[in-house]
Amino acid sequence: MIELREVRKAFNQGRTNEFWAIRGVSLTLEDNRVTVLKGPSGSGKTTLLSMIGCLSRPTEGRILLEGRALSGLPERFLTEVRRRTFGFIFQQFNLIKGLSVLENVMLPAYPIGRPRGALETEASELLERFALGEKARYRVEWLSGGEAQRTAICRALINGPRILVADEPTANLDTRLSRDFMSIVRDLRAVGKTVLLSSHDPEVYDSPFVDRVVQMRDGRVTDC
């Protein structure tokens, strides 16, 4: 369970261009649920997701994971939590060009130092599961949008995280691929994963596989 207590986030704090992207959010996100942060551009969805996923820290307030405060952890421990607990799917997919599909999927596991054979086997199995087995040796820039996203999903799953964080996952996909993605989300929930999405795409927040929609506007939760 993830708990947010009066979380606030400022950018350029103390400068003339200071901007509060999150203005006091308190929220509890249950395990094994699909939650969507919904709202227009600039409502603070991505900022909130990045704080929940330990990619950044709140300026004020606390974030707790299973009762343990994350916000005060040193960078090293925060990275460890991020690596073991969260898997990220970015809007632009953020795959590393020039590397193969397989290498991209294995990247998050490199700092853990798992034996190569086992890691390759697991990555290949993931790719098979997402119908990318034949493209394992392809360079990522040769992939279509849907394939690139599925590669990003495999990469997010390689360290066996409990929570998947996806920021605007369907922004670069057409309707059919968006629905395919939501089917994958359903399957992930079925195997016990918690999924957090940010989106203003009806294909996402109106999907029958979504358990909860948190409405955001101007850095605040307006409906949950």
């Binding site: 990619l55 960078e75 090293r76 990275t79 991020r82 690596r83 990220f88 970015f90 953020n94 590393i96 060009k97 990247l107 998050p108 490199y110 700092p111 990469r155 360290n159």
Partner: peptide, 19 residues
């Protein structure tokens, strides 16, 4: 810019600053 982006990605997917 490409290298900076890569560093950002690596950190986001779980690499430490030290790595």
């Amino acid at each position: 810019a490409e290298e900076r982006r890569e560093i950002g990605i690596l950190k986001a997917i779980g690499w430490e600053t030290g790595d």
